[in-house]
Amino acid sequence: MKTIEEIKQAIETKFGVQISIENNSLLIPKEKWPEIASFLKTDPEYSFDYLSSVTGTDYKDYLEVVYHLYSMGRECGPLVIKIRTDRNAAQIPSVVSIWRSAEFQEREAYDLLGIHFEGHPDLRRIFMWEGFVGHPLRKDYVTEDQDRKI
């Protein structure tokens, strides 16, 4: 597998974006993400055909979505991609059309963290019920007090 530096260089020259490396992962601006994703999947030098995991983290100042990419054909990976977004208007382009495995995982991240994946074919809550208010995995979510007297 190419080193993370080489992948960074290749993406930067091809798409003209600024990418930084943080703890062995690529920090990518969200605007170009679908193009970069389909490049990483289809380019024979990388062919990351398997999107293993999609999830998010609430860092209080911003939300971060993490993608773990592997290549089944070339048997290498992971390539870790991180995308940051604003907490109040959390929007990130969906990659379901590129990797189907994102379908349920993006729904899960939407349900529990409130990240809107633009272009997802069926963005509904998946674990919590329709009509539930809030997103439990956000750090400012107030958990119901189990011991309260009714």
């Binding site: 529990l112 809550r125 998946i126 674990f127 919590m128 019920w129 995995l137 979510y141 958990t143």
Partner: peptide, 11 residues
Amino acid sequence: VMGYLHRNHEK
């Protein structure tokens, strides 16, 4: 349709 056994393990 899932979520009947959801207990927010991660939280």
